[in-house]
Design a binder for these strands. Structure first.
Length: 334
DNA sequence: AACATCCGCAACCGCTGCATA
DNA sequence: TTATGCAGCGGTTGCGGATGT
């Protein structure tokens, strides 16, 4: 409370540590333990503040630190834990032996966060982003998810239920899109759904599905074979609590009332479910060149099929973008 | 080859929570 | 109960190397 920064005192050294300083610190701690961090620098003969010494030790010099790249399992564990705990880096680090909170935080900020964003997820909520353009990859992934499930007997019944839930979510996204303005490019007017320019919508769909003009401009399907490419990145849904934990009252990640000792949580943080999931299994054996699985003809159909059997559509307002997108996504291409 | 930009990481800063007097 | 000191945490910064132009 109102204390001056410790390093301001007496011109204590800041910045990168030299090998000599490292050696001095390690030597002292190995001999005496760190004891009081505030007292340590003087005792160890270092011209540093205690805080700096503590950080250097915990983040770099500690003998049990594991160095090198994060493996697939570690990455999945971080995703799982972050979905539950949020930015509680030290809590996450405590579940990853040899990794420091700083390292995990850096890895999150430089890799995982971007990855989730690219896949159409909000990195804070781990849920699909609410604007359609950024969530298109997610919708694509959902469709592929269903396709995948249809070709696996693996926990089929349970996953079908989850798939149905996911598809419902996709439909919700879709509706949300209809209720949001497109980014303005001069030809559209914000906040007015009736003022959407038809070509804008079509172009956005084209751009974001990565489809050539022919796919939308002609009725001939040319999306290639309908196989899910195993080399592509795993769908990250396995870490989503509502898809993985049989828990109806899941709340926000930061809600301290979550019972983190529940067996479901234990399974979650150990990545049991996700490690057994077919997409992780398929991706772990192959490098992941692309974040977004490709949309295939079959996955398009699957998404369409699932949506056509849902009751959600009946409640949707009957407006032209609805029909247009239904056509584009579910009928025209197939 | 030179310069600009991007990226990853180590370290710092400021805040919070806990222990203690 | 309040003030103080400390350790720990999370956000942010800045440096150096890698990559692109």
């Amino acid at each position: 409370m109102g204390r001056p920064p410790c390093c301001d005192e007496n011109g204590l050294k800041k910045g990168p540590w030299t090998p000599e300083e490292d050696q001095q610190l390690v030597k002292y701690i190995q001999k005496h333990g760190h004891g009081s961090w505030r007292a340590l620098p003087k005792l160890a003969g270092l011209n540093r503040c205690g805080k700096s010494c503590r950080l250097r030790w915990t983040n770099y010099l500690r003998p049990d630190i594991k160095r090198g790249k994060f493996c697939q399992e570690e990455e999945q564990t971080i995703l799982n834990l972050h979905a539950v705990l949020g930015n509680k880096w030290s809590a996450i680090a405590s579940r990853l032996p040899g990794r420091t909170d700083n390292e995990i935080k850096n890895f999150w900020n430089t890799h995982l966060k971007k990855k989730l964003i690219h896949m159409g997820f909000d990195p804070m909520t781990h849920r699909p982003r609410t604007d359609i353009l950024s969530s298109l990859p997610h919708l694509i992934a959902l469709a592929n998810l269903k396709e995948l499930i249809d070709h696996h007997s693996w926990e089929e019944q349970a996953l079908r239920l989850q798939s149905a839930e996911a598809v419902q979510m996709a439909r919700l996204q879709y509706l949300q899109y209809l209720l949001q303005p497109l980014p303005s490019n001069g030809s559209t007017t914000a906040n007015s759904i009736n003022s959407f320019n038809e070509m804008d919508v079509i172009n956005h769909i084209k751009d974001n599905l990565g489809l050539g003009a022919s796919h939308l401009d002609t009725p001939t399907p040319s999306l290639g074979t309908s196989t899910l490419q195993p080399g592509h990145d795993a769908i990250p849904f396995s870490h989503l609590p509502d898809l993985q934990i049989p828990c109806n009252d899941y709340q926000t990640p930061l809600n301290k009332e979550n019972n983190v000792q529940a067996p479901e949580f234990t399974a979650l943080i150990q990545g049991e479910s996700s490690l057994n999931s077919p997409w992780l299994a398929s991706s772990s054996s192959t490098p992941s060149p692309s974040v977004v699985p490709p949309m295939t003809e079959t996955s398009m159909n699957n998404l369409g099929d699932a949506c056509s059997t849902s009751s959600y559509g009946e409640a949707a307002p009957s407006i032209w973008p609805d029909l247009l997108l239904e056509d584009l996504l579910f009928h025209e291409i197939s």
